[in-house]
Design a protein around this nucleic acid. Structure first.
Length: 730
DNA sequence: AGTGGGACGCTTTTT
DNA sequence: GCGTCCCACT
């Protein structure tokens, strides 16, 4: 009830109670940003300043939106109905569906994802006879996305914007792409905001309606907003000016996706008379971690300036460990060893995370963790909706719901194989283009006049009949029964049932999961929107596992112990970021490091290795400049880092061959020695049948103390520790 | 129509 | 080292 205010510190409380006028809350890492946002939300509702339907809450991720909804409900003691609370994109979609006709779409439009975009662009490039090897579709797709992020339409981009893209035809192609989307009755992510903004600008009546509705606007992660999001917000906020943006310029790490830190830096100019409140009391990390993070980020220029201070007393404050290793394999061993030791000391694995700069780095850790039998999960890998079978199934649903959805139709026309290959498809495309009709309609025409012959004709007719029947079935029987029928009668399920690949059963499981998820929605359209906009894996998260993820994926999370491997020049800061964006790139990398450090509550272990396996070859690296930027008083150098540091500070650029770390090979420091563990009570006999969590069943070939060489039935030869296998009683 | 081999090119990626 | 894409072959 009222005590949501009592739990706040004075600055947080001010941020919650300053309801009128523009407000910028600069919330450092771990300073209770979410608490403030949710308390403010609840405060507006509880004091009767606005009804739930008059508050607009905007986040970047669905997860953040969900959390906020739950926490507001918890404060109020009941679920809240009618809130406009969601991501920029979901809110954009919601508004756009109501006014789609203004931009030439129907309210049933499909939201396409990046994959579909690329395929579309590729087709357009080919139609324009642009060499897609030299001018990659992905590049143009990305460019168009960036334009949309900046609120630029095909008409408003400049020649300079479009130069060096798609053989100089980028502007035409962008226009053609938008036209194509309209024909397909589809919108990409960028359109959800671009179209909406266009409508708000062109239709004062519509704009006024929304401006009146939204008496209070709350924006999370404001430092990550791009131009179009900013324009969208400004339009909506103009009337009441009760806009509260919460963000941290030091955590802006998405400029490469169009985010503009400038939005936060110039808030006071854009909203004159704005109140600015700084949240600087950190309740998350130990003083050593805070000092290390602050010392590092102080190297950035052009900050709004915040200093984190410890908001709570800490019984102990371990220094930040910095570990040098010889190569990336050793680094993985060391980190995994520490994880193992911490676990043995009673720390839950769920409170540990390995945060890397680039996705490929997780592999070394995965291998090592598997080897020593520590459960882990990789956050943000292949997502559910990205899987082939899910995309296929969704394409079926889309093709049924929306006959004009050529992208979906094309995806399913020959899945399962129907003998409708490239030749048939080309004929369809020709017909569709000359008559400007969807592919499905073109197919019907070719069947009718006999231009499709034989098996192709038969199969195409069957598919079209199917689509029509399923459409009727969705109407009469509902989306769940309809969907199941589609997957079954199309032969799609049978296709996987007949597939002998080992992953086929899993795919069938995923399809079942998809149908189950579908059941939670009222309509097929609602479900398809959800899938297009909500891209997260619903993995069971309750098991005790170490988390492996990129630094980007870690933003907003916290753990007791955080491992930050790979702090090497070239990798982190990333060479490409430096090459492409110079000092700006470097500063963003530094913010990424800051984000990494501030994820930790109690313990940070930074590490780097002199040699790293990248793809197939080895590369030598210098330690990251960020290591030097950590205040010496807060860190503990392990191994020969001290040496390396002196050498590097002392001299100019250094060649890997001179690197003193080479001398550290073989040297081990006790921190990463494997802890003594109770041996297995009875040794595992050679020849025994055993079971291993990861590798399955196998036969023991040799035993050396607690290490077993096992030939697994599926996984082949492995050396594993005996405590990770179970004896199989035959 | 489907597949197998070689060339290529790889930072991050909330929607 | 691996996945993707294209072309050549069957």
């Amino acid at each position: 009830m009222q005590d949501y205010l009592a739990r706040l510190n004075p600055e947080q409380r001010r941020a919650v109670e300053t309801l009128d006028g523009p407000l910028l809350v600069l919330a450092g890492a771990g300073t209770g940003k979410t608490r403030v946002l949710t308390a403010r939300f609840a405060h507006i509702l509880m004091t009767g300043q606005a009804a739930p339907g008059q508050v607009l809450g905007v986040t970047f991720t669905n997860k953040a939106a969900r959390e906020m909804r739950e926490r507001v409900a918890a404060i109020l003691g009941r679920p809240v109905e009618g809130l406009w609370l969601g991501t920029f994109h979901s809110l954009g979609a919601r508004i756009l569906r109501r006014h789609a006709d203004h931009v030439g779409l129907t309210s049933q439009f499909t939201i396409i994802d990046t994959d579909d975009q690329v395929r579309l662009i590729k087709q357009l490039l080919e139609a324009e006879r642009v060499d897609t090897r030299r001018w990659q579709p992905q590049i143009l797709t990305a460019a168009i996305q960036r334009w949309k992020d900046r609120g630029l339409t095909p008409q408003s981009i400049t020649a300079a914007d479009a130069a060096d893209l798609a053989a100089g035809r980028a502007q035409t192609l962008y226009g053609a792409y938008q036209e194509r989307l309209r024909t397909l009755n589809a919108a990409d992510f960028g359109d959800l905001l671009l179209h909406t903004t266009e409508i708000l600008r062109a239709r004062p009546d519509v704009l006024e309606q929304y401006q009146r509705t939204f008496r209070y606007i709350l924006v999370d992660e404001y430092q990550d907003t791009n131009v179009i999001q900013y324009l969208w917000l400004r339009l909506l906020a103009q009337r009441h000016r009760n806009i509260c943006c919460v963000g941290d310029d030091d955590q802006s790490i998405y400029s490469w996706r169009g985010a503009e830190v400038e939005n936060i830096l110039r808030f006071e100019r854009d909203f004159p008379g704005a109140t600015v409140i700084r949240l600087e009391a950190n309740y998350r990390s130990t003083p050593a971690i805070l000092a290390a993070a602050s010392g590092l980020i102080a190297h950035n220029q052009g900050r709004l300036g915040k200093t984190l201070r410890a908001g709570a007393a800490h019984a102990s404050s371990e220094k930040v460990q910095v570990i040098a290793t010889w190569d990336s394999d050793e680094e993985a061993r060391v980190v995994a060893g520490q994880i193992e030791r911490l676990r043995a000391e009673g720390h839950p694995l769920a409170e540990m995370a390995v945060l890397v700069r680039a996705g490929f780095q997780t592999r070394a850790f995965e291998e090592r963790l598997i080897n020593i039998g520590i459960p882990y999960r990789v956050v943000g890998g292949l997502r559910f909706y990205e899987r082939q079978e899910i995309r296929d199934a969704l394409a079926y649903f889309r093709a049924v719901v929306q006959p004009a959805d050529d992208l979906a139709f094309e995806r399913i026309i020959n899945v399962p194989k129907r003998g409708l290959g490239e030749v048939a498809l080309r004929a369809l495309h020709d017909e569709a283009r000359t008559r400007a009709v969807p592919l499905a309609e073109a197919a019907a025409a070719l069947i009718a006049d006999g231009r499709l012959k034989g098996r192709a004709r038969q199969e195409a007719a069957r598919l079209l009949r199917g689509l029509a029947q399923w459409r009727a079935l969705l109407e009469s029987e509902g989306h769940v029964v309809g969907a199941a029928a589609i997957l079954d009668e199309s032969g799609y399920v049978a296709m996987w049932q007949n597939d002998k690949a080992p992953d086929a059963p899993g795919r069938l499981e995923n399809l079942k999961e998809l149908l189950r998820a579908l059941g939670e929605f009222e309509t097929m359209t609602g479900f398809l929107d959800h899938v297009a906009l909500v891209m997260e894996n619903d993995e069971a998260g309750d098991a005790d596992r170490v988390s492996l993820m990129t630094l980007h994926a870690a933003k907003g999370l916290e753990f007791d112990t955080v491992f930050l491997p790979g702090w090497e020049e070239g990798l982190f800061p990333n060479q490409r970021a430096l090459d492409e964006s110079g000092n700006k790139g470097l500063e963003e990398e530094r913010r990424l490091a800051y984000v990494g450090l501030t994820r930790a509550r109690r313990r940070v272990v930074v590490s780097y290795s002199a040699n790293r396996r990248i793809y197939s070859s080895w590369q030598s690296n210098l330690p990251s400049r960020f290591i030097e930027e950590l205040p010496a008083a807060e860190i503990e150098l392990v191994g020969s880092v001290a040496l390396a540091r002196e050498a590097r500070v002392g001299g100019p650029a250094m060649f890997p061959a001179q690197f003193p770390l080479l001398a550290s090979r073989g040297k081990t420091v006790d921190v990463w020695e494997r802890p003594a563990r109770p041996a297995r009570e009875k040794p595992v006999p050679v020849g025994a049948r055993v079971f291993h969590q990861k590798f399955g069943y196998g036969t023991v070939r040799a035993a050396d103390d607690d290490r077993l060489d096992i030939t697994f039935d599926k996984a082949g030869e492995k050396r594993v520790l005996d405590r990770f296998v179970e004896l199989v009683i035959a």
